[in-house]
Design a protein around this nucleic acid. Sequence first.
DNA 1: GCCAACGTTGGC
DNA 2: GCCAACGTTGGC
Length: 159
Amino acid sequence: MRAERYWLLKSEPSEFSIDDLGHRPDRTEPWDGVRNYQARSFLRDGMKVGDRALFYHSGKAPAVVGVVVVVREGYPDPSAWDPMNRHFDPRSTPDAPVWYMVDVRLEDVFPAPLPLAELRGIPGLENMMLLRKGSRLSVQPVSEKEFQVIVSRAGMARP
DNA sequence: GCCAACGTTGGC
DNA sequence: GCCAACGTTGGC
């Protein structure tokens, strides 16, 4: 079994916030609606059960707000074939799915959000994808070091 | 509200 | 295959 990997998942909190995740049964929810091929590949092929991901709120108060753990690996995203869903994409069908999702469970909510502006000043994050100009990818890999630096800065270093 | 960066679309 | 136009993301 390969070592755990680390990721970052972006969400606009008015759409789906870390608080919303905390109120789901078993604090678990499919991470659906991703419609970018690079992000799709990370969801489908990269993320494995046990991997952890930083939960990032985009928008008015951009910040890392907590940690989730992958509890189910990539499987087809059914919201793509629901015409009523705003992420509907007729190119994807149950027989030939285009879009994928994973299930994530909330592991930790940071005592306080760690704002994007603060991340920019933290040593060790100089090469983080999130901080690169023009980086819009909503599912990103994060190095183990970056993950640890962020979690410890958030006041949540774990054994 | 602005705008830079990026991804997608479609004409050629 | 190229590339201009367009729509979206997302920080500021």
